[in-house]
Simulated assay, not measured.
Amino acid sequence: MKIGILTHHYINNFGAFLQAYSLQQAVLELRPNDEVYIIDDLNLRHFIINVGGWFRFYKDKENISNWLQKIKLPSTFRNARKAHMNLTKRCYKTSEVNALKLDCIIVGSDEVWNYRETKGNAKIKFGEGLSCNKLIAYAPSVGNISGSDAPEYVVNGIKKFRAVSARDELTEQLASGIRNEKIYRVVDPTFLAYIPDEEVPGINQPYIMFYYCDGLSKEQKEVIFDYAKTNGYAVYGAGENDKKYTKTTVNLTPFQWVWMFRHAKYVVTGTFHGVVFSMLSHRDFTCYMTNPSRIKKVGSLLKEFGLSDRQADGSANHILSILKRGVDYQAFDRVANVKIEQSKEFLQKAIK
């Protein structure tokens, strides 16, 4: 069987890369005799906007030296995709995807079903125009969409899928209302497969790590820097810049990014995959979000694993108090192991 994965793999983002890579690896483990590809379908508008974003210069947080490191990231991601993803030939049209003659197409994960997101929304990810009869949705997300205003192509598309799962509550509600059936809640693909790591050179002391906690004020971040200095911690940003970080660690491969999570003392993040990799790495973490989509996605994730108390209110004192309060990872593992097996079972049954 020829199986294709249709997702936002082309986006230069650590979570986007790792969820696509992990789903590829998970399907390969479940179906070792099948051909498994990531469909190199390029949403050109989405791709260009994403690449352009890495070239912005933030004068309050960056200097020329670390900006020059940051703008290398699109090339770093391109090389990682070539090395670690089994890509089909490049496709720009649905007809070109159909010409691949795939027996099964898995759509997901991430916000592939956020039909209000003007940059990345694509009708093909709702199955429109696809001739493949075996369409599966694995862990798609609608972002922060709620309500019943879905366009006709979304409704008809979701009905077309052979099997549908959801990564969060809002996606589950939307799909359940459209299909009038129970929707499987599954874990993000990064839970399903072993992900290797690569050491980041020059890191030799315990550290607090930030990953895109964008809404945190400069003043509150300063308090955390002072705490780190007093207690002998370095401070790094995994794939992000700040002139006050101990060292520039922005131009990371995806597997170096994983390494930084696995070796951090504490993690402060504002993203879905920042929380996922904190949990998978058994790190003490906290999260603070201001982006509505992230609030919904991350809130649903934390609730699912009984970790809603890891969400901070944006004050440094609250962040530090949460970090010092350890996570019960034995309890987390018990829940996660069950969900992982259920998610693999969903995939296996859907593909057959």
Rank of each mutant, 00 (worst) to 15 (best):
A238C: 08
E240G: 02
G120W: 00
Q25H: 13
P292H: 08
W259P: 10
L347T: 03
I351Q: 00
L6R: 01
N114R: 15
A16R: 13
F191T: 04
C213E: 05
F272M: 06
F14G: 07
K101C: 11
V112N: 08
N204S: 13
A80F: 10
W257V: 10
S22L: 09
F57T: 02
A83G: 01
Y184S: 12
N180G: 05
M1G: 12
I105M: 00
K123I: 09
V112E: 09
I295K: 15
E96D: 04
P189Q: 11
P140G: 02
S109V: 07
V276D: 13
S165I: 12
A336N: 06
I319N: 01
I158T: 10
K89V: 14
Q205C: 13
V327Y: 14
E222T: 14
V338F: 04
G143H: 08
G239K: 08
Y37H: 09
F285W: 13
S165Y: 03
I136W: 08
N12M: 13
L6Y: 02
T286H: 09
Y37L: 07
V275L: 09
D214T: 05
T94G: 12
F255T: 06
G232D: 05
D242Y: 11
P254D: 00
T7V: 14
D41M: 15
F261Y: 14
N13T: 15
N33M: 12
V223R: 11
S217N: 04
N63V: 03
K59N: 11
S321V: 03
Y115T: 03
S75V: 03
K59M: 08
F225Y: 11
V268T: 05
Q256Y: 07
D168K: 08
L323V: 12
G127A: 10
Y236P: 07
L280A: 04
L102T: 05
R116E: 03
N317H: 11
Y236H: 02
N337M: 10
N204V: 03
T94V: 15
Q173F: 06
K61T: 12
A163G: 02
F55R: 11
Y233G: 06
T118D: 10
P32N: 10
D103K: 13
A336H: 06
F285Y: 15
D309A: 13
T290G: 03
T7W: 01
T94L: 04
V154D: 02
I48S: 05
I136T: 04
T290P: 00
Y58T: 01
V268K: 04
